[in-house]
Amino acid sequence: MLRDITLGQYYQTESVLHKLDPRVKIGGTLLFILTLFFYKNFLGYLAAILFLAAVIRLSHVPFSYMIKGMRSILFLLLITVAFNLFLTPGTVLVAFWKLKITQEGLKAAVTIALRLTMLIIGSSLMTLTTTPNNLTDGMEKMMGFMKIFKAPVHEMAMMMSIALRFIPILLEETDKIMKAQMARGADFESGNLIARAKAMVPLLVPLFISAFRRANDLAMAMEARCYRGGEGRTKMKPLQYKKRDYLAYLCMVGFMAGSIWLGRLPVL
């Protein structure tokens, strides 16, 4: 059932957010993250939380999926918070043993926790509502200006989408090779970490060989179908801004301006 795995973390459902142009979502996410670093008081963060909550509602993606993305960085988050909490000098609030919590430290810790959490949720909202393919397309279009500097933008995007297409195929192949080797007595499960890593080496060799063979075949098939790089190529599904995309940009800019104004009011 390896073939059914979802790549990236796309969540299939119908929503306005899913229909938006990928460029809007990439741009919007970047703007959102940028905005988070402009706030000086908690009003700004409140505005950002409300905005994020509204967008999550719009996306029709269950909130639990957003939390899943958080789990991987929980450890990092805790360490960052702890450092900020205990190591910031200033007016001491509580002190026990050798540790002391300062007022400034508390503020810094809460700020960093809020920023990191919203940063992760904001960007996973983008990957949850955009197919990997769409993301690649959006990035290719957005990076288009790099072509002036002779950057191989189209080629990079093509490589990414081919890589995405071959992940399930190579996974299945790995599974096959593993089973074939297990049938002949290979042991992938017991032993410590090093022993298990060593057991993977004989797995990698045939996998690499087959990946190269596939790459060779694919290159030939692409050339046979007249592939010659990005030049003179047309698009079957060209990215075109629609009304809702402009509207989304407008909302985004509105949110940015509003929340930064709020976040810089001289309170707290």
Binding site: P132, N133, S161, I162, L164, R165, I169, R214, D217, L218, A221, M222, R225, C226, Y227, R228, G232, R233, T234, K235, M236, K237
Partner: peptide, 21 residues
Amino acid sequence: DNQIIGQVVEEDVGFGPENMG
């Protein structure tokens, strides 16, 4: 498996014409 480029059937069929412009 080694000659299908698109991640969706219709995109793969469109690959040749796309290349031809």
